[in-house]
Design a protein around this nucleic acid. Sequence first.
RNA 1: GCCCGGGUGGCGGAAUGGCAGACGCUGAGGACUUAAAAUCCUCCGGGGAUUUUUCCUCAUGUGGGUUCGACUCCCACCCCGGGCACCA
Length: 876
Amino acid sequence: MAEQTTSGNPQQGASGGAAGTGSGYDPQKIELKWQKRWADARVFESEADPSKSKYYILEMLPYPSGTMHMGHMRNYTIGDVVARMKRMRGFNVLHPMGWDAFGLPAENAAIKNKTHPREWTNRNVGEFQRVLRRFGFSYDWRREIWTCDPEYYRWNQWFFLRMLERGLAYRKKSRVNWCPKCCTVLANEQVINGGYCWRHEDTLVETREIEQWFLKTTAYAEQLLDDLKELEGGWPERVILMQKNWIGKSQGAKVKFAVADIAGVEPIEIFTTRIDTIYGATALILAPTHPLVSKLLEGSPERAEAEPQLAKMRQTSVKTEDLATMEKEGFFTGRYATNPFSEEKIPIWVGNFVLMEYGTGAIMAVPAHDERDSEFAAKYGLPKPVVVVPETQAPPSKTEGGAPAHPIEAAFTEYGISVNSGPFSGLKTEDAIAKMAAFAEQKGFGRAETIYRLRDWGISRQRYWGTPIPVVYCAKDGLVPVPDKDLPVVLPPNPKLTGEGESPLAATPEFVNTTCPKCGGPARRETDTMDTFVDSSWYFYRYTDPHNDKAPFDSAKAAYWFPIDQYIGGITHAILHLLYSRFWCKVMRDMGLITHNEPAARLFTQGMVQKGGVTMSKSRGNVVGAEDMAQKYGADTGRLYTLFAAPPEKDLEWSEESIEGSWRFLNRVYRLIERHAEAVRGVKGRVGKIEDPPSKIERGAPAPVSVGATAKEKTLLRKVHQTLRRVTQDFETRWHFNSAIALIMELTNAIYAQEPLEDGVRPEVRKEVLELVTLMLAPMTPHLAEELWEMLGHKDGLWTVAWPAFREDLARDEEVEIVVQVNGRVRGKIKVPAGTAEDEIVKMAQVDPGIAHHLAGKRIVKRIFVPDKLLNLVVA
RNA sequence: GCCCGGGUGGCGGAAUGGCAGACGCUGAGGACUUAAAAUCCUCCGGGGAUUUUUCCUCAUGUGGGUUCGACUCCCACCCCGGGCACCA
């Protein structure tokens, strides 16, 4: 930003008045002026009103950290354009903003600077607020939310208690991901790149066993999957797919294998999607962390050899990315299990590729029909009996037992026909799966079952800057929920934050020591705080009723505003935030707070802003500060460029050179209107108001000159109404803001081409044209548009004005250019009055010298005619 | 490995079966100016023909296909980005 010191510098141009750009466009002055007017007129404040059509548009709430840069602004700019457009379209728009204000960075900063996390948070929120206001976004600031406000997080606690009552919150000891830098537990989803902390991408995550609080997201697995259907068409396909994969539904069967030879050991339960291949199982393989492993090794002849290997497997860090390529390793436990179908004894192994977290932590190995098992079997010399053959390859006979003459090399994993499978031989795979599962259930050693990859949501964090979990532990009464009337359980004001050892709350006696709500005796408070994804799982409901102190929100208000009509945010939240929000919504529905199934009807994921080919971020040091931007060019130029440089869903490469183009364009528009403002000021202009019905808005467009219009006037009116038609489309249906801006630029160029307008264009036509330019820009560059609107002689602010309706009669072309092709190649163009008949155009084409010589000596065998557009003559 | 995106001038991008490269940036030239900036105008994919006007031809990652006509639809492949991944 610094090296631009030519006198074309907009800052000089702006502050120096007419110098620099040669126009009086001074964004610093007009932007502040209009922001103040909007605030004074309370333009963006809205209330639930069932008599009005509502539109709830929401951008994901930011985590206020560091400097706000143009990467942040893209999200809000897109949202603001849509919000303002919908306002102009007469919708009652809810467009709120708030702060994801709890979280680790605040606490880490506090540790580093020996301050309180609140100070860091306050400072950052202050900066973010200032920048968002500086950009003129149309938020209803009365609804602002800070998630670290006790009046907000008390409802996190309230929800937690409700979930506890419903059995959706529970405590269990579990292996957790522990980040040594954060000194806290991470959710599985916060472990990225196969074993690294999501905040410290260079820090390997360890595992520890701790008592944790969980929310039972798995109880809703089927609904979370099923209701994705409701989102089709409204959410990006890939987000739906990512959610689907994350939930990971898998239909199969669980089967119990009895352990042979040793008494008192419970059977080993495996999960398989291919129970039909069970006659081909040549081993059971357990996860290294499977609870039965030690029991099996006890007294086993293989124990001495096995134990060191087991120890090694258990400690190997779980780097998932290596997992996929890692050599499959295993060892024999010295024990055998009985295949309940074949009664065969098969060896029990332990394998490093079997995951305790998925299924039952144990599998049956079927080397002939599974890739991994095949690989494993090859390495350790396990047999590979074939039990399924392709349907095309007719089974020789219902052979009983015995492997085929030659072992197969590759595993056959497709469906086919069962062979060598006892009474199930000869069945098609689908039938075999159904019959064998039924058989297992009938005999009591198994059943068909559906499992999910989705796991319960671990919400415990051993940190200070989050929502305290509202339970106490009493020696007499055990775990006791804090009664609603005692909420919120507030954070102690002066914690000792060291970043080491136990959690800060545990180290604060005045917080920990309390009395039992049941017996009044001494008790200890829970010292874990909640994952901040809890805060963001329902904040958009609070916006509908932000100051309610009786309930998280009023159901009637939520019913009016919900579902969110348009949610906008980064693809980075495609899984976690959205999945948790969907879960929360379903829980609230089951509690009777709301009636809908899904919180957001439409989701838009905008692309990232990059500089130098990488995503703009503070840590990469390639940010373009939003405030610097506003100071140099003004907010409107920043907004316009962000919209113009790329379509909103694609990544945007920031270019200091290109932005000059947006700045120049706005100046060009300003000069144009400045030049004609005086002459048109007294003329009657547009009258369409936001609250008017569509028919009146249409009439609001003056029909100034259908009689006696000059050629210039016709050209201008046609161009402006054609532009309006296409821009309206780009805004409403496609969100192609970049091409909408291109169209307005083209229009501006066309107006300039007709200068001097005084010569042959009456003031009322000039006014119509300039007003439409202004209105089309209004959602994108609202400050400039207000200023221009005022210059054009309007007393009422633009916020009272409706989006204009285009006039079909004015947009229609009188003369069109027909493209003439011969055999599909363009050979000429003919200008004709609109609506000219095909035959006529063919005649003209045949005598057109440029076209005629392509037809010479040939016969026209076919004609394709697109009225007012194209004629294709096929010749032979 | 599987699943999504995407590949168009020097650059960002436009064109949802009908003139490929709109619009903007960069660059070149011109006007204005004592000069510079700003502003305004013109040109700007490759090759070829032509004295100019102009005409032909190739070109949207590669190779096929459908069609009167393909950046657009279909098939195969290559490359780039993202997601998932011993999921039993």
